[in-house]
Structures are given as structure tokens and as C-alpha cells.
Design a protein around this nucleic acid. Structure first.
Length: 472
RNA sequence: UCCGGCGUAGCUCAGUCGGUAGAGCGGGUGGCUGUUAACCACCAUGUCGGGGGUUCGAGUCCCUCCGCCGGAGCCA
């Protein structure tokens, strides 16, 4: 079925195929222009690179009148032809077609949703099954893939194990945020306990179950055996938040390292960001050039600057002091700055964009605003938490050293009104060979947004799930 | 969830003071050209988001519902 001389368009345009070779490409038509001098120009893309290949179709082709002149955007074609130096401008080589086979027609070109013109991102979302054929979503798709591979490559090269933490969790103690319920019970006819509550004992798992909101607690168990581990998988939040930065289903990366403290964690975060973005700039110059030209003029410069920058480290207390000083100088913040508050977006951006003018890891936050598992510092009022802030986006990574001391962990659980019995296996890790350890979390889609400048997170994931949005 | 904005042709939009609906692109036909989101001429296309109200008359004003976008909150 597949022609022996088939080549990807990336190889044709990238110099991987010699001028003079006879090859076959398979792909989809983007545009067709006719020259009555007796030939047509058909741009064909196959997803392998940003640029389409220009196929020159001479009128001598047997199906020129009947088929070639009827090609429209979206038609699937198989083209056999000779690679030749282009006579026109805009491409160095092109394909002089000797045989053009229409594999799949567009049945009604008048209503084909993808036109060779600029569409709004909102419209493209409504045709999510066809939008990967556009320049921008094609570029996003390759960037997403490249970053995903770079994530795995980074950790693999350092000896980390990728841990497939569960999607379904029955531990009712995850805490962070609204969770989606997982159940096979008949919602119209729920079993009840004598007291009248829903009887989850009759449910599939024998108890209430949810979709995971984080793989961290699970991955800590493997960290206490494999030393260096990470998760990279789907994560779910049932919050009714409708913003350009939130999804109900997104992908999260969570490394966890043993025999490590908060400084090791911050160093890992810095090395990680630099590594994945360096790889992106190296491997996807074509797509990044498109984003730089049409989406976000600063995106390439921003990544290059981050790769070169030395990440600043700043104590939360110092950050507050600096923000208070800025406020005293007349800088206006919507939310006043006081020790003990969580940093608002405006504060984070001012810190990284105006004060530090570069990436910064803010460390040691007040314990009142952070999770129970973060390690208590000796001052008694802060925990070993860190956020990595970057210009243009604010928080890009959040992490912490974990509380490895059982008595301190129990004290925090009690202090926050949680039930120690719900954390049996998590507490066990502190009873059997506990060690200092730390980790962080990164939203994969936000990392893509940061790299590309694509404003709405729904456009950097193939099929976005959000409140009232689960089509396709 | 709260605040603000938007919803008109396949797509992007215009539509004045309330008076029977327009352009560009795309599509079709023809012309022209080694073309580059080509160009020129002609042709076709509308439940003006749904419902209700005011009015002689509503795309336009009012109410309501739905959807989308932006900001905030929450966070990744």
C-alpha cells in the first residue's frame, strides 16, 4: 500500500532528498493556484513540518482537467513527482508532479470549515476535529510533542523513573480542589444506608472514588525506593473556573527526589526548564519562527533569555520587603502587601519583571497558606515551599520539601483539621526509613503557553475539557 | 462563581436616529498570470443565538434564557 519511494515533506524540504529524485508524498491540500499557462500549484502538508511542499501540476497530467483543477483545501492526495529546484520565490525546492492521485475528496468545498485564511481561535475550537490541519494548531501539536519528549529525555538522562500514578483514586484525602466522582451507581436510584446517606459500599470500588487531582502523594512512595522519580499524566479538577489558564483535564509533571532539600529542588526546577526549552528551540525552529512572527513577538527571545539566565533565589520575607518598598515608592497594587499573604498575580509579575528582571525562585512561604505536607522550617512560621516565577507569566512551577518527620507531619495534619487515619500509607513512609525529599509540579499546558505565547490554554491541548465543554 | 463585553452569510465583520439585509474572504463560472493568503469580472448564500415584550414597524430598544470571550477568584 505505502509507496516504496514515499518521503515525509519535512525530509523533502529539509534537504533529506536529493534534487532529481523521484518520490511520493501523501498529505492534504492547503491551497491551489492555477496558471492558465498550463499548470497548477498545489500546496500539500502532511504534518511533518511547518511548511507545505509546493507541487507543480502540469496540464499534461491525464486527470488535470477532471481532478487537479477541482482540488480544494482539505482534499487528501498522493503525489508522485520529481524533486526540482524551484523557479519561483518562496521555496528552494518543489515537487514536479508526474502522477496526482486524489485519495479523498472534500465533499462540499463550499462548507468545508477550514478555509485558507485566518480563522479565530474560538471558531477553531468549534471544529476541533479539523483544526489540526491549520498552521497554528499543527505547530502547537509539534511543539507539544517536542516538549513532552524533552521532559522524558531530561529525566531519563538523569536516571529518573517515570511512575504511572493512578488516574482513579479512592483515598478521600487528596484535599486540593474539587474532584470528579467516579462511580457506577445508578444516579436515578442510589442505594442508601439505614441513615439515609448514599451507600458507597455498594459502588464499584466499595467506597467513594475520584479522578486524581495530583500524583504527588503516590509518587512519594516510589521516591522512597527509586530515589528519583516523576509523574507525567492527566490530572483532573472539577472547579468551575472559566479562564484562559484553566482546564478540567490537563497534564501535569511532578518530579520527586530523595535525600534532597528545597535548594536541590529549586536547582532541579531551573535545570529542567532550561533543558526542555533549549531542546524546543533546537528542534522546532520552523514552528517557533511562526509563533514569533504571528502569535507572540517575544516568545523566542523570552526562552533564549531564560536558558541563559541565572535563576535568582529569594526568600518570601525578602520578597514581601521588596514589594512593600515598591508600594512605598508609589507602585500601585490592587491587593496590599503584608507578610502572611499569598502573592497575587500582580505581585508575582512585579517581582519577576520589575525587581528581578528574570526568573526567580521565591522560597519559604508562611505555613498558613501552604499544604499540610510541606516541611516546617525552624522559625516555626514558614514552610520549605518554593514557586518559580518567570517574566510574562508569573508562577510557572510550585514545589516544596516534604515533611519527613512523623511527629511534625501529624502536628500539621491535626493543625489543619485533617484526619490522620486518612493518611495511613503516607504516614508509613515516615515510619519506615524516612529521608528528606522534595519535588515540584508543573502544568504541561502552561509550559506550552509560555513557550508559544498562545493565550488560551484550550488551544494547546488537542481536545480541551472545561466547564460545559466536552465535545469531540 | 462574580464583573465586563460579544452573538448578523461557510469564515471575519459593518449595519447611522427603529423603516423590508451589506462588504471582504471562501465557493461556483469566465478571464489573466511560474503562482505564493495571486489578481480582474460576474453569480449564489441569511430562522440577524432562543423565547417574550414595547411599537404601525425591531438586526437595532427592554426583559429573560443559552452560548462564547476577557478580567477576578481558585490554581497547574
Amino acid at each position: 500500500m505505502r509507496p516504496a519511494n514515499k518521503r515525509r515533506i519535512a525530509d523533502v524540504l529539509g534537504g533529506g532528498v536529493a534534487v532529481g529524485d523521484t518520490i511520493t508524498v501523501e498529505g492534504w491540500v492547503r491551497t491551489r493556484r492555477d496558471s492558465k499557462a498550463g499548470l497548477s500549484f498545489v500546496h500539500v502538508h502532511d504534518g511533518s513540518c511547518f511548511e507545505p511542499v509546493q507541487v507543480v501540476a502540469p496540464q499534461e497530467l491525464p486527470n488535470y482537467q477532471a481532478e487537479v483543477l477541482k482540488l480544494t483545501a482539505g482534499c487528501a492526495v498522493r503525489v508522485e513527482g520529481d524533486v526540482v529546484a524551484s523557479q519561483g520565490k518562496g521555496q528552494s525546492v518543489e515537487l514536479r508532479g508526474t502522477r496526482i492521485e486524489v485519495v479523498g475528496w472534500v465533499e462540499d468545498p463550499d462548507t468545508y470549515p477550514m478555509q485558507p485564511k485566518r480563522h479565530t481561535m474560538e471558531y477553531l475550537r468549534e471544529v476541533a476535529h479539523l483544526r489540526p490541519r491549520t498552521n497554528i494548531i499543527g505547530a502547537v501539536t509539534r511543539v507539544r510533542h517536542t516538549l513532552a519528549m524533552a521532559v522524558h529525555r531530561f529525566f531519563h538522562d538523569r536516571g529518573f523513573c517515570w511512575i504511572h500514578t493512578p488516574i482513579i483514586t479512592a483515598s478521600d484525602a487528596e484535599g486540593a480542589g474539587q474532584m470528579f466522582k467516579v462511580s457506577t451507581l445508578d444516579l436515578a436510584n442510589l442505594p442508601r444506608t439505614p441513615a439515609g446517606a448514599v451507600d458507597y459500599g455498594q459502588d464499584f470500588f466499595g467506597k467513594q472514588a475520584h479522578l486524581t487531582v495530583s500524583g504527588q502523594l503516590n509518587v512519594e512512595t516510589y521516591c522512597m525506593a527509586m530515589s528519583q522519580v516523576y509523574t507525567f499524566g492527566p490530572t483532573f479538577r472539577a472547579e468551575n473556573s472559566n479562564t484562559r489558564r484553566h482546564l478540567a483535564e490537563f497534564w501535569m509533571i511532578e518530579p520527586e527526589i530523595a535525600f534532597a532539600d528545597l535548594n536541590d529542588d529549586a536547582q532541579l526546577a531551573e535545570d529542567f526548564l532550561k533543558a526542555i526549552y533549549a531542546r524546543l528551540l533546537d528542534e522546532r525552529k520552523d514552528d517557533m519562527a511562526f509563533f514569533e512572527k504571528h502569535v507572540d513577538k517575544d516568545c523566542v527571545r523570552r526562552l533564549a533569555a531564560m536558558i541563559e539566565a541565572r535563576f535568582e533565589r529569594m526568600d518570601y520575607g525578602d520578597a514581601i520587603t521588596q514589594l512593600e518598598a515598591a508600594s512605598a515608592r508609589g507602585v500601585k497594587f490592587e491587593f496590599p502587601v503584608t507578610w502572611g499573604m499569598d502573592l497575587q498575580s500582580e505581585h508575582e509579575r512585579y517581582l519577576t519583571e520589575e525587581i528581578v528582571k528574570g526568573p526567580v525562585a521565591v522560597m519559604n512561604y508562611p505555613k498558613g497558606i501552604k499544604a499540610f505536607y510541606m516541611r516546617c522550617n525552624e522559625d516555626g512560621r514558614t514552610v520549605a515551599a518554593m514557586d518559580v516565577l518567570a517574566p510574562g507569566i508569573g508562577e510557572i512551577i510550585g514545589g516544596s520539601q516534604r515533611e519527613e518527620r512523623l511527629d511534625r507531619l501529624d502536628a500539621r495534619i491535626a493543625e489543619m483539621g485533617l484526619n490522620a487515619a486518612d493518611y495511613g500509607w503516607y504516614r508509613d513512609l515516615r515510619r519506615y526509613g524516612t529521608v528528606p525529599h522534595a519535588g515540584f509540579g508543573l502544568g504541561f499546558e502552561r509550559a506550552i503557553q509560555y513557550a508559544t505565547g498562545v493565550e488560551n490554554i484550550r488551544d494547546v491541548i488537542p481536545f480541551p475539557r472545561a466547564p460545559r465543554q466536552a465535545d469531540f
